[in-house]
Write a protein that binds this DNA or RNA. Structure first.
Lengths: 125, 125
DNA sequence: CAGAAAATGAAAATGATTGTCAAAACGGTT
DNA sequence: AACCGTTTTGACAATCATTTTCATTTTCTG
């Protein structure tokens, strides 16, 4: 898995937004690629396993992917309008999650945090 | 929509965990109910519209529901093992989310925060 | 270049969720 | 209780994202 995986990765690198598999498929086909949807799913899965892309679920359950600049733990600030995404970190939130978990006797704490909003550009147009 | 909606609501009230539609369906049928899966989906949707149940997506995209004690904004601490869920709040997180959004020129900030862990009971075995 | 192993794409299978529609339950009215 | 219009219900079909299957193509290695 190399040719296609790199192509998919490249598409994601060129986008600041989270993209769905279908979305990527449509763009690549429009660009003349003969890639199949199956291959895109496989590539996204592999890239995610390698920690090279982040994945999250939209409200309607669709998986969307994004190439992250860092493989370190981070969160996302996502524009509801255009999907523009900024990577952010929140040390306070990490601490809070650990504390809340511990207070209730939970161990092996993890958490998901996503912030949504309307970006400056979308607020105008 | 009343008979069935109440029955579904009651099932959720009796459970501290997030439950899937299929899951609820199986339990109700086991209890002798003749309810259909379609009706359960409709009931869950209505209950969610009324703010009487919370919904979130599992990692594999399945929607799971839970009756929440409060209709006020809150977060969840969920056990990965048994699904046991505790409602928690995090004033600091709310503030952090607003600030992070504002720093990047985003408005109309919302956020999703879920904390996962292993509860005391599941940690034993 | 041969031949094995990995990758690819088309099409079928899966699984959750939603739409359709006729039958059943309900409510109010005589 | 019988009547009638409205709402709710459940079986089944349809949809949509994702996964699996499998034969073909490409890549790698010797």
């Amino acid at each position: 898995m190399s040719r296609s995986r790199d192509a998919v990765h490249e598409i994601l690198r060129q986008s600041a937004a989270f993209r769905s598999a279908q979305d990527i498929f449509t763009e690549m086909r429009a660009d003349g690629s003969k890639i199949g949807l199956t291959t895109i799913y496989r590539a996204l899965q592999a890239l995610n396993d390698d920690g090279r892309v982040d994945v999250l679920r939209t409200d309607d359950g669709e998986a969307v992917y994004r190439a992250c600049a860092t493989s370190a733990h981070h969160h996302h600030l996502v524009c509801r309008g255009c999907g523009l995404t900024v990577e952010v970190d929140g040390p306070d939130v990490e601490v809070w999650a650990e504390r809340v978990g511990a207070e209730h006797g939970f161990t092996a704490i993890t958490h998901t945090v996503e912030v949504f909003g309307t970006c400056g550009a979308c607020a105008k147009g």
